[in-house]
Computed example of a mutant assay.
Amino acid sequence: MENLKIWVQKNGFTVILVGFFALMLFSPDAKAWFLRQIASTGILNSKIEAPKDNASENIENQPIANFSVTDVASGDQISTADLKGKVVFINFWASWCPPCRAEFPSIQKFYEKYKSNQQVVFLTVNLDDNPELGKKYLAKENFSIPFLIPSSEIPKEVFSGSLPTTVVLDKKGVIRLHHQGVADYSTANFYEQIDGLISEK
């Protein structure tokens, strides 16, 4: 026992480091907290792109292929084809995904700020194999974002399998932001970009 104490004293930093990585490996909430600290710096954020004339050169600024989701609470189906004239924020997430958990508080803040704005639509699409897990996660965290699940095939230009993925459509249904990975959507800069899309004709 005495030898163990001596070893720990000599290798304290190593013990702390191993403990930290073990926590990151086995605790989704710990991973989410760590990623949230990184995301809060803004270094992982993407920027909403300005419309371009040569839109065919990349995925942004191309008209979206339509898909549908179901609002679990109401049973209503929502099609992106019916959302022209609105700014659409789409986020694909799952309850088991630490980066999704990391960015969710910022999405909740963004939702609370714009939920009463009739020109902004939130499609927060859960991709858990069992949707009940996603519902339980939202309830546990007291998140009030819409709980939606896919009701049609999702086009690859919108979602290619990486979680989380966030897409923002302008009023013409054109992709103006396509971001894979964690980000902070509760910044003043992002709100300014959304307001810019709202003001576009």
Rank of each mutant, 00 (worst) to 15 (best):
K86V: 09
K5Y: 11
I78P: 07
E112R: 10
E60Q: 13
N61Q: 10
T80H: 09
T41S: 07
A139G: 09
P131L: 07
I64Y: 07
T80C: 00
N91W: 02
A65C: 03
Q77I: 08
S106V: 01
L83P: 02
Y137S: 04
A39W: 07
S116T: 12
F20S: 07
I90D: 02
F67S: 03
F89C: 00
A22F: 15
Q37V: 10
F21E: 07
Q118M: 03
N54K: 11
I38N: 04
D82T: 07
L123Y: 09
S79I: 05
N11Q: 11
D29V: 08
A81S: 15
A30S: 15
R36D: 11
G134H: 04
G42F: 09
D76E: 15
K86M: 06
Q119E: 14
D71M: 11
E103R: 04
A73P: 06
N130M: 10
A81Q: 11
T70K: 15
I48A: 03
A22C: 12
R101P: 01
N11E: 10
F104I: 01
Y137P: 00
A65M: 09
E60D: 09
G134F: 07
F13M: 08
S74D: 10
P28I: 13
A50D: 13
I78D: 09
K31C: 12
R101T: 01
F34D: 00
F13H: 04
P105I: 03
L83F: 10
Y114D: 02
K113P: 01
V87D: 07
A65T: 12
Q77E: 14
A22W: 13
